[in-house]
Write a protein that binds this DNA or RNA. Sequence first.
DNA 1: GTCACACCTGGAGCTGACTCCAGCCACCTA
DNA 2: TAGGTGGCTGGAGTCAGCTCCAGGTGTGAC
Lengths: 133, 133
Amino acid sequence: MASALTIAEAAVATGLSIDTLRFYERDGLLLRPVPRSAAGHRRYEPQDLSWIELLNKLRATGLPLRDIARYAELVRAGTGNEAERLELLRAHRQRVLEQLAQTAEHLGAIDRKIGIYEATLDMERTPAPEMAS
Amino acid sequence: MASALTIAEAAVATGLSIDTLRFYERDGLLLRPVPRSAAGHRRYEPQDLSWIELLNKLRATGLPLRDIARYAELVRAGTGNEAERLELLRAHRQRVLEQLAQTAEHLGAIDRKIGIYEATLDMERTPAPEMAS
DNA sequence: GTCACACCTGGAGCTGACTCCAGCCACCTA
DNA sequence: TAGGTGGCTGGAGTCAGCTCCAGGTGTGAC
């Protein structure tokens, strides 16, 4: 089994820091305690890494760690609570959509501001033609 | 001049809390100290409110308060630094675009996850037709 | 065997962005 | 003139999400 990563490798693979990986585990954000080597060192298996990838996506889209912990708890509890998991994801999806729309709108305002500065600077570079000459 | 708002009114108008309005002012995020009434109470004028609206958009799109303070500082310094302001806004715009793209991508993954749960629950509700009968 | 190295734990510290509080003042109303 | 309301200040507290640290262990290289 070549496919178990050390914590340093897992950090590179997931884009998280070593400290953050340990912190997430302590906080119950993972589906299980990461398996250990004989020496007690963490060995991340593919299932651990793919869960962390999902976790990263949820976090990057703004789901608080508390909610991710709740979701992990549901998954750990096994089949039977799929409706609640679905509800959690749908609620998050909804917020993400709203946030996307908002951001796009605000981006428009920022773009207009940029346009104004561009015009200002353009005018400086090519001043209005002088009256005589 | 009916158009100057108390801090309580400004809070409603901007969606910020009274404490946050004072905090932003203390931290130099506004273009000027908000004018005061004879009693020393803040009176927000239209120009203050419209700056706060821009501030809100920058913040809502993820620009750190430190960078907003820097931008405010440039605006306060008057004409002559438009290139730097433009640079700041363009850099922010770029990050917002990247973040939008990322979020949209992650949303896709979340949607797929939702699809899986929906399928699971659907199957439960309408079990496969039985063999005999 | 001793050195470096990667990793371990529990707990403290930090950053960003607020939020709350005590103690005070000014205006209005009855 | 007494009480209530709304605002003031400076400073402390809070919360999320990490990040750092001291002191310790197991493993391989020389």
